[in-house]
Design a protein around this nucleic acid. Structure first.
Lengths: 198, 198
DNA sequence: GCTTGAATAGGACGAGCGTGCTATTTTGCG
DNA sequence: CGCAAAATAGCACGCTCGTCCTATTCAAGC
């Protein structure tokens, strides 16, 4: 069995599998991933899918990394087009709302699924969540340095509260539907900004 | 097969099963529940466990209801010992923190697991979450009526933001460990109160 | 074009799952 | 005690799962 894709076709197939897997994970969680189900969705044999990853766990890790990469590109990197400070913070929130809109966030699901299951997957989830929190904290720090937020603002506390707003937005959107949560999350964020404005 | 427990012994066994099930669900989620695993943990036969519920789904629903009942008793009812207003709101937060501390909240896990799976379980989750949000909203409304919060406060918005604080507290505690999240959540709640104080 | 190795298929294995059916044990009531 | 009903056990069925082993198809370089 050859694990590493060494051919253009191999790489393409692997990417296609991961893409489908992400769709599945957004709906049903990381634990719902099955080689067989994925094979059927891709019109391949179980062995064909399996050979690309070597184990179910490695498949899950690959999906996790791909999701983190997507999020980093679509939300964080996109927000870098905005100038540092509150504008960029708002851009992150806006991108994050789009990301959350429509389908569940696989990473949030993974947090819930693996927060009590020690192992490689949990470690990876923790790693990505730390990275995300650090990115948020840095973005808040920059807003202090531009003078838009007061310099007694705790950027980690700011990131913590911002994360909470996104979590409840995700929760309400997924569970109750509608657009109320978007409005409420925006208000909550406005209050967060206003309270720390210089 | 007789579903309803009609004997003291039957009721006791059923309760013991549900209690074990709640422990399992707190760690691994509602979807991880298996008749076999539960039977093994209770030193019973699969059929013995099965007969108490009639189906896996009915077992999951019973667990869900039991969790909601526990939460209502340990957090909400307990807070009723405090006078209506900010004191009671703080009591709810404190009880909620205790509830979240140590093990994951099964209801939060169920939200993530079933937010995209239409069916009876999802309906039940939505039901309990609506009830909880209503209870929070009422508690905030009472704090307006006591004059502690400004009367232009939107109680539903207050409940929304309070929920977000608990969600990120749960997230960070489960994933990162430590007690930082408790301090941060308390600060966030203080700010929420202060911003709406009359 | 042929050959080498990668990509994929096919099938088998053991385990665990939920569920139904039929005993057997245990409980509670007259 | 004895009897009816409840509680529990034992077993079997069909299904899905991850994984392994082996064969076959396909793509790329000489």
């Amino acid at each position: 069995m050859m694990l590493a894709a060494a051919t253009p076709k191999g790489v393409a197939t692997r990417s296609a599998i991961i893409e489908r897997a992400i769709g599945q994970v957004r709906k049903q969680g990381l634990e719902s991933l099955s080689i067989g189900g994925l094979a059927q969705a891709a019109a391949m044999s179980k062995s064909g899918v399996f050979a690309h990853f070597g184990s179910r766990e490695d498949l899950q890790l690959a999906v996790l990394d791909a999701v983190a990469e997507d999020f980093s590109q679509e939300v964080l990197q996109a927000a870098f087009h905005q100038p540092r400070g509150v504008k960029r913070l708002r851009a992150i929130l806006a991108g994050w709302m789009d990301w959350t809109h429509g389908a569940g966030c696989p990473m949030i699901a993974a947090v819930i699924e693996y927060d009590d299951r020690p192992g490689t997957i949990r470690d990876r989830v923790v790693h990505w969540q730390r990275r995300l929190r650090e990115a948020l904290t840095r973005a808040a720090q920059l807003a202090i340095e531009t003078g838009e937020l007061r310099d007694d603002t705790d950027p980690a506390q700011f990131a913590f509260e911002m994360f909470g707003i996104v979590l409840v937005l995700h929760h309400d959107t997924r569970l109750f539907g509608g657009t109320d949560a978007i409005v409420r999350a925006t208000h909550a964020f406005d209050r967060l900004i206003a309270d720390h404005a210089a």
